[in-house]
Design a protein around this nucleic acid. Structure first.
Length: 328
DNA sequence: CCAAGGCCTGAATG
DNA sequence: ACATTCAGGCCTT
């Protein structure tokens, strides 16, 4: 476990745990390279830029022509959220408190919206290992190569929307994305044409309005929408509900969110639900039930509910065993 | 509105 | 070995 970014609270920036942040399922095109001395560099693709992060301090640079790295100015790790104080805004129940204590330095990465959209369309009904391979192949096939030197060598920028919009479904499918290829092409066409305008969507004040805009994108359902909103559209109250989160909410927040029969839900990831278990509000999430759940969750966890989601998600995965983690 | 079933793929499981 | 399951869902019926 590395904590970084200064020792004290109050005085300097709050700490940031780069490894936890990079390994929490938010991003897929980052990898670490051993520094010459102690520590790691993290190299990643962020839209049409290649970034490098100091694994100890979180200091972020962007690659410029001519082999230079210059300071990245977009607050990648959201220091402006004042992360050290976010736990105060959350409920003080035991589970949330434990997640905050263990993962308070796990940040939310401010991502490029188009890349984020394609990434999470690709993620649906998939797994991290495969998603990483899919996106890497898309970048290699449709993204411009950049030699950043150092230990990272040649990286590929994320494909521009025009590149994936102009590709054939077959070409996209050859990256291993299966039936999602058509969604990726169509969604890219919508971005290219301006039908999807992330700059405009980002300005929407109402969660429901923004959700409606996201659900108009092919391949985007509620869960993927929440990921895109949380990671790239400044919706920090977005709370992606996937199987893992449903399990956590059912087993550890049953009192709060009204899931019945929580004792019947095993903590083992592959356990099959009991065939005779009673229906729960958190099972078979339809759009309507998903939104209702969101409202209760946002009310309970507060304006930074998305951070709680990330911390709880990481805690659940870590406690279930680390075999899911992608090996790079 | 809701429930059920299909869907690419490949690593993991039996 | 070989078949089945399942993975951080979405879409259509």
């Amino acid at each position: 476990m590395q904590r970084a970014g200064g020792s004290g609270r109050g005085a300097g920036r709050a700490a940031v745990n780069i490894a936890d942040t990079m390994n929490s399922g938010q991003v897929f095109l980052w990898r670490s390279v051993q520094k010459k001395g102690r520590g790691l560099w993290w190299y990643g693709v962020q839209g049409q830029e290649t970034l490098r992060v100091d694994g100890d301090t979180g200091r972020t640079s962007t690659y410029r022509k001519g082999g230079k790295w210059s300071a990245y100015k977009k607050d990648l790790f959201r220091d402006s959220d004042n992360p050290g104080r976010i736990p105060e805004s959350m409920p003080q129940d035991d589970v949330t408190a434990e997640a905050a204590r263990r993962y308070r330095d796990l940040r939310i990465i401010r991502q490029d919206p188009y890349q984020c959209m394609v990434s999470f369309i690709t993620s649906a009904n998939s797994n991290i290992r495969r998603i990483t391979g899919n996106l890497s192949r898309m970048a290699e096939t449709f993204g411009r190569p950049v030699d950043v030197g150092g230990g990272a060598g040649t990286m590929h920028l994320f494909p521009a929307a025009s590149a994936l919009a102009g590709a054939t479904i077959r070409e996209i499918r050859e990256c291993g994305v299966g039936y999602r290829a058509a969604y990726i092409k169509e969604a890219s066409e919508m971005v290219e044409s301006g039908e999807i305008d992330f700059g405009r969507i980002r300005e929407m004040k109402d969660y429901g309005d923004m959700m409606d805009a996201m659900l108009a994108i092919p391949g985007v359902g509620n869960k993927v929408a929440d990921c895109i909103m949380l990671f790239s559209l400044e919706r920090l109250d977005a709370f992606p509900l996937d199987r893992w989160m449903l399990r956590v909410l059912g087993t550890r927040y049953g009192d709060v969110f009204g899931s019945r029969g929580s004792h019947a839900v095993s903590s083992a990831p592959s356990s099959a639900p009991s065939s005779s278990s009673p229906p729960s509000p958190l099972e078979h999430l339809t759009d309507k039930r998903y939104r209702a759940a969101h409202d209760k969750i946002a009310e309970y966890f507060g304006p930074y509910a998305g951070y709680a989601q990330q911390w709880l998600f990481k805690m659940a995965r870590d406690d279930a065993g680390a075999s899911w983690r992608q090996k790079m």
